[in-house]
Structure formats: C-alpha cells, structure tokens
Simulated assay, not measured.
Amino acid sequence: MPLVTVMAVACGLAVANIYYAQPLLDLLTRQFGIGSGTASLIVTVTQIGYAAGLVFLVPLGDQVNRRRLITWTAAGTGAALAAAMISPGFGWFVAASFFIGVTATCAQIMVPMAAHLAEDGQRGAVVGRVMSGLLIGILLARAFSGIVADIAGWRAVFGIGALTMFVLAAVLYRALPEEASAAARMSYPQTLRSVAALLRDEPTLRRRIVYGGCGFAGFTIVWTALPFLLARAPYHYGETAIGLFSLLGAAGALGANAAGRLHDAGYGRRAVAGFMLAAIASFAGMGLFSTHVVAIVLGLFFMDLGVQGVQILNQSTIYALRPEARSRITTAYIGCFFIAGAIGSALAGVSFELAGWPGTMAVAGLLEAAALAFWATER
C-alpha cells in the first residue's frame, strides 16, 4: 500500500499540470498583450498535447519498461514546465503548453501499471486509490494555481510545478519496480494499430466507454457552466470563492474510492447503477434548487461521487479483459472519455445560453439517464 500511495500522489501531481494555466488566462493576456480569444488557445493546445500523448505515448506502456517510461516522462513534464516559466513570449508559452500536455499522460501510464501489480482480489481497491489521487489532482490544481499566482506571480506556479516533477521523477525511479513488457515483441506501428483492434474486439470495453463517457460529459457540463451561475445573482461570488467549490469535488473523489472495494466484493455491476443514480439525483437537485447554495454544494459532492465511482468501476472491469494490453486499453478508454468531455464543454455553453442553469442540468441529467438505460441492457 505505500507504493500505491506513492503512485496515487504521483498521478495527481502529473495530471494537475494541464490545469495550472486555466485560472491564469486573464493574467496571461496582460502579460503577453493578447486578447482573451487568443489566450484560450493555451487550454486548447494543452488538451491537444494530452490527446497526442494518449495516442502516441501511453500505448508504449505495453511495449517498454514502464518504470523508465514513467520516470523519463515525468522529467519531461518538469522540463516543459520550466520552459513555460521562462517564456519570453506567447508563442514560446504555447509550445511549452503542448509538451506539458503530452508528458502529463504519464499518469495514464501509472494507472494500468498499478492494476498490473495488484493481486486479483485487490485490483479494484488499488485502481480506486490511484484514480482518487489522479482526480484530486485535477480538482485541486486550479485552486493551487490561483493562490500561488496571487502571492508570487504566474511564473512561480510553473516553477514550483517543474521542481515538483523533477523530484517526483527521482522518487518514482527509486520506488517503482522493474517490469517486463508483455507486448515488447510488437513494433510501434503494430502497438498503435492494436488499440483500434481492442475497440473492435471487446464489447465490454465499448459498453464501459458509453457508461463513462456520458457521465464525464455531464461532469464537464457542470464544471464549465458553474462559474456562470455563481458569478450572477443571487450569489455574486468572486473567482477565489468559485475556485474553492472544487474542494467539494475532491471530497466526492475520496468517497468514490469505495467503488473499487465494491468491485472486489463482486458488486460491481449493481454499484454502477447506484453511482449513476447518485449523479442523476445531483443534476436534478442542482437544477431544481439553483438559488440555494446548500443544494449546489450537496449536488457537486454527489455528482462527483457518482461520476468518479462509475469511472473507477469501469477501469477495474476493463483492466481484467486483457492483462497484457492494459496501457492500450487505457488509450482506447481515456481517449473516448476525453472526446466525451470535450463534447460536454461545448454543450455547456450552448445549453446555458439557451436554457440557463436549469436547462444545462437537464442536459447533464439526460446524458446520465441514457447511460443508465444502456446499463439496463447489460447481461
């Protein structure tokens, strides 16, 4: 379990790097003398880099020594963050952001490694613990970035991040075990092509992509539209107060750790439905009682609990399909997951503009309800 804890913390620190720039966009517009539309390219390019890492880097976890791959990738993140810290201009910063996204995928190499190292009866709990660390890193990154930037400036955010990743690379090199790769005899092109073959040949993988994708689309809808709700009447919250709402998501991610234990106990299928119902109830509550902050607080907690619980159950299930292909399964699953999140972000803006917060929550709830209806067809 100490190794699992190290991997959970490492996953959180690694994936947090792609979110540091988001609260700083207004500050960066002033620093580089650009418009808000141009500044949004930072987030877009970082996400493109992350997608590229999922496609071209993560599958190597089934082909090469994972310990070395993770260590070098973490060090690469440190170098990219250092480049962002010393950026003399916007173009340099955008290029650094791309490589931050690419190398931050070392978190998605560690998750299947943790599943591989776990014993069969503990795999769900191990995946749950590591994924909880990853999810907490995502949720707390924005708050960390905003606080540090207020105190020491935006360059300090990336400087601290770079130092942290270099230290983390050294820790992981000492902590992670040497591990032979099951697909070492495959060529790199064959490894990439086999990802599509997994999607074609594994119906359980496709089904779990639907479960997770619908939930994550709803998740991104809420977090994308939430600042618009909280900045207006009756709340009129500032940016710092809005950022602190991410702590509620972190609490939900901690609770979702129990999902892995339910999987290990043999209750995985029923638990999926339970977590989906929790998410649906949260969307309904936040939509119906949008002027009550208690309803928003409870809704965010149970939404995160539900969505992340399904995510952990999904990964515990799909990693048992083909033990020799867990990194490529991660690419297939998280890649589709990533697409669903992008669709959710786009839907959030349109639905909030057309139907306000209640209509936006209705869209999120319908997506989760569709996943639940599809779950009912599972044998």
Rank of each mutant, 00 (worst) to 15 (best):
L168W: 07
T71E: 05
R269N: 10
R326M: 08
Y235L: 01
T73E: 11
Y235G: 01
V45H: 04
G238N: 06
V126M: 07
V195Q: 05
W375V: 01
A364W: 07
A332M: 14
A83E: 02
I343T: 12
G35H: 05
L230V: 02
Q47N: 14
D304K: 03
F289I: 05
F228T: 10
P189Y: 04
R261I: 11
Q308V: 08
I160W: 05
A74N: 08
L199Y: 08
F158G: 07
L372I: 10
F245C: 02
V58W: 11
A52F: 15
R129I: 06
T377F: 10
L226N: 00
S145C: 01
Q108N: 13
L244E: 00
G124M: 12
A182L: 07
G306V: 14
L81S: 09
F166V: 08
C336V: 15
P112S: 06
F302A: 08
I18V: 15
A258V: 11
R207E: 09
R30E: 12
R129Q: 11
A364S: 06
G309Q: 09
S316R: 05
A376E: 12
L24C: 02
V171T: 10
N17T: 10
T291R: 13
S181F: 04
G121K: 03
A250H: 07
T317M: 11
A114C: 11
R261M: 09
G137A: 05
F166D: 00
F32A: 02
S290P: 00
L134Q: 13
G365E: 06
G12Y: 08
M186Q: 10
L27H: 07
L354W: 07
L3C: 03
A74K: 02
A279E: 14
N17V: 10
N314L: 06
T220V: 15
R185I: 00
F337D: 15
L134K: 06
T330A: 15
A79D: 00
A125N: 09
C11V: 14
H292M: 13
G161H: 04
A225Y: 05
V307W: 02
T73A: 12
L176S: 01
L134M: 15
A346L: 13
R232K: 15
M276E: 14
L176E: 01
C214R: 02
A107G: 03
G255S: 04
A169D: 00
Q308S: 04
Q315Y: 12
A284R: 05
L366A: 14
P234E: 07
A107V: 06
R207C: 12
A149I: 07
A340E: 09
A175F: 00
H263S: 15
N257I: 11
L347N: 03
L27C: 04
N17H: 01
F228S: 09
P23D: 02
V6M: 04
G266E: 01
L230R: 01
I151H: 02
L262Q: 06
I86R: 01
M276S: 10
F228Y: 13
R269E: 14
Y267K: 14
